[in-house]
């Protein structure tokens, strides 16, 4: 039997710092697809088998198959009020789609995180 793991990750990020303007913006995102599973196995059997037994193992790959899709998006906007003071707002969205739940059940979930504050330098 063959086990195959596949993972594909795409990421992009950008930052804008307008000249002469008091604000800057950054954004970043990562999209990841992952999968791990094995194919239906051929079982190596001894000559003497037990009559009542069922040696069809074709379904067992489904019990432990894994398949996820993850998205992570973050952005930050900051604005300077003066040479030493600025404010910021950050947003982060973290999302996981569990397309093949295992023993932990469906672990699909997402979190939206917000941060905001002011900053001063001295």
């Amino acid at each position: 039997m063959d086990y195959e793991t596949k993972a594909t990750s795409l990421h992009a990020s950008g930052e804008i710092v307008p000249e002469g303007r008091p604000w800057r913006v950054s954004i970043a995102g990562t999209l990841t697809f992952t999968e791990g599973s094995f194919d239906a196995p051929d079982v190596e059997l001894p000559e003497e088998t037990v009559a009542i037994a069922d040696y069809d193992f074709s379904a067992i790959p489904e019990y432990s198959r894994l398949k996820y899709r993850q998205i992570e998006l973050t952005s930050r906007v900051s604005r300077s009020f003066s040479r030493d003071a600025s404010g910021y707002v950050e947003l982060g969205w973290y999302d996981l789609q569990d397309d093949s739940p295992w023993v932990y059940g469906d672990e699909t979930g997402s979190v939206l995180v917000t941060r905001a504050g002011v900053q001063t330098s001295f």
Partner: peptide, 17 residues
């Protein structure tokens, strides 16, 4: 990093088998 839980190179039961 890994797809399988606990940084396993493959998921159980294949890893054990």
């Amino acid at each position: 990093g890994s797809v399988a839980n606990s940084l396993l190179v493959q998921n159980e039961p294949f890893l054990c088998l």
